[in-house]
Amino acid sequence: MDYNNQYSTTSYGQSGGMNGGGFMPGSQGDSPSGKKSYGKDTLRPVTIKQLLDAYHPNPDAEHFMIDDAEATQVTFVGQVRNISQQTTNVTYKLDDGTGIIEVKVWVDTDAMNDEGESKTKVAEQGYARVYGRLKAFGNKRHVGANVIRPIQDHNEIQYHLLEATVVHLHFTRGAPESLQQGKGGMNGAANGMGAQQDGGYGDRSMPSHMSPAARKVFACIKTTPQTNEGLHMQDIATRINLDVNDVLKAGDELQGLGMIYTTVDDHTWAILEV
């Protein structure tokens, strides 16, 4: 059983596993691909079908992708079909109408006395909410859960499914703000965004976590006529009326995302076409 081993690679050790923070992205030297940087941990609401459809970005990757976004912690609501008490864990079979998946909650002997009571409240045929990580063991998938709790209000089922839909649309069609762009009558940054969408960047949407400054800088480089040397940050700063330091920061961010690259010197940037 390398379950334990796998489990310790999650953030379980950090304040009970619910806490993804603490690390800055890129502050860990161990993997340039950023494969295990918990700073990027997110908690995403999903349907069980999305978990079953999740895929590995490459054959030996440990993490899963959903809608081309890395899925770390996930949460969902489902109906408990079966509960089976094992020596090391409790296995629940959950069905949310989109699929069925097993959820394992590890038995923590120390916490047994405190939590034993609340755990028993999850009942067969009742609905429960799960927080955890998707795991693959052989060909079988399960969710290693930090928390499973019975739901009190049945509206939470609808709430969860709608929330999961919003997040799905966010990743597949972009944030609502970028969908509203180009509806006419918008100012500089918005027009730039519009241009970006039909531009060489294809229909690949911008990462949702980009800062507004980075979006502006990107749009500026994208739309300003230039040589193949790109634009200098001073030039960008005057064009979009932003402090040079902010432009510099935005430039770093965009380079980190692989969206721009440096040309003649460190402060002259061009769009990285893919």
């Binding site: 989109t98 049945h154 509206n155 709608l162």
Partner: peptide, 29 residues
């Protein structure tokens, strides 16, 4: 499964869920 008195359930949300289920089936079935 009994979901309790009907007043306790927001049926607008229920209809919305059915709507998105068939609008974005890739997530649901």
């Amino acid at each position: 499964t009994d979901f309790g008195p009907e007043g306790g359930i927001d049926f607008n949300a229920v209809d919305a869920v059915v709507d998105v289920t068939h609008r974005y089936p890739e997530m649901f079935y």
